[in-house]
Simulated assay, not measured.
Amino acid sequence: MRAERAFDPFTQDSTPLESDALTLLARTILRDYRGRIALVSSFGAESIVLLDMVATISPSTPVLLNETGMLFPETLDYQREVSSMLGLSNVQLVRPTRQRLAAVDPDDMLHRFDTDACCNLRKREPLKRALAPFDAWITGRKRFQNSLRAELEEIEQDDDGKRKVNPLARWTAADIAAYLDRHDLPRHPLVSQGYPSIGCEPCTSRVADGEDPRAGRWRGSDKTECGIHYVEGQFIGGGGI
């Protein structure tokens, strides 16, 4: 397990882009919001890049995963594998309450006729509750992922006044792939099966060659985001994690 230690990104064997991201993370985790910041991660296709960086800086940083009850089993297996490998000691599974599930989605069918309501129940509400003790949170969003994220800033403010830190905002898909190769990090097992973007199992499908990587999310609808970066239906500074 990685131990807490003084961290200097410029002593790491990293590219300039990596150093920039590590510098931002180190400043926010170790200085600006020390003890008051969490990483929100889906443990999806690209998540291990940011998880690896955070583990390098401070492996006890809280990591929040929306465990909606509908994640792929492979995602939960991957979460355990990656957490153990990186020495992440404070991974928290964020779940909807039993009372809310019983009241709003007792038969687990809400996603079939109201995906926005399902995401609100299983993602937005639980995450808002989990983030309450923190002053800032880290996301893995990137500008290249869709048009809504094209103007994404590295530091934003959410509707609750919390800072949102996006260290990979300027990264491209090639940058992500290069980091994975450079650091010999394990891919999510579903990526090789045609899932370049991974969410809940009922709302994620395989992507054909030539399709947009996020085409498999909520296929057949206009929905492109889970909603955790929306407030009263309005887009706030970026898309889903």
Rank of each mutant, 00 (worst) to 15 (best):
D158Y: 04
P133G: 11
S84W: 10
R100A: 11
S42W: 04
N66W: 05
G140K: 06
L39Y: 01
K164V: 15
D209R: 11
Q145F: 09
F113R: 14
L86G: 02
V91I: 10
L65E: 01
R36P: 03
A132P: 02
G44Y: 04
K128H: 13
T28D: 15
V91K: 03
E156N: 14
R163N: 11
P196E: 08
L168A: 09
P196V: 08
V165C: 04
F43D: 05
G87E: 07
K162N: 06
D184W: 08
L131V: 05
T68F: 02
G140R: 02
R112K: 15
D175C: 14
D105R: 04
E225C: 00
T56C: 10
E81V: 08
G194L: 10
L110K: 01
S47H: 06
Q234E: 15
E153P: 03
E232V: 09
R27E: 14
P202V: 00
R149P: 04
L131A: 02
C200I: 00
A177F: 12
V231F: 15
R141G: 02
T97Q: 09
F7Q: 05
L168R: 05
L30C: 13
Q92D: 08
G35A: 13
D212Q: 14
G210M: 05
G239K: 00
L39H: 02
Q79L: 15
A150N: 10
K123D: 01
A117R: 04
Q92T: 14
R80W: 13
T97H: 10
L25Y: 05
L51R: 08
D158Q: 08
P167C: 10
L51Y: 09
L51A: 01
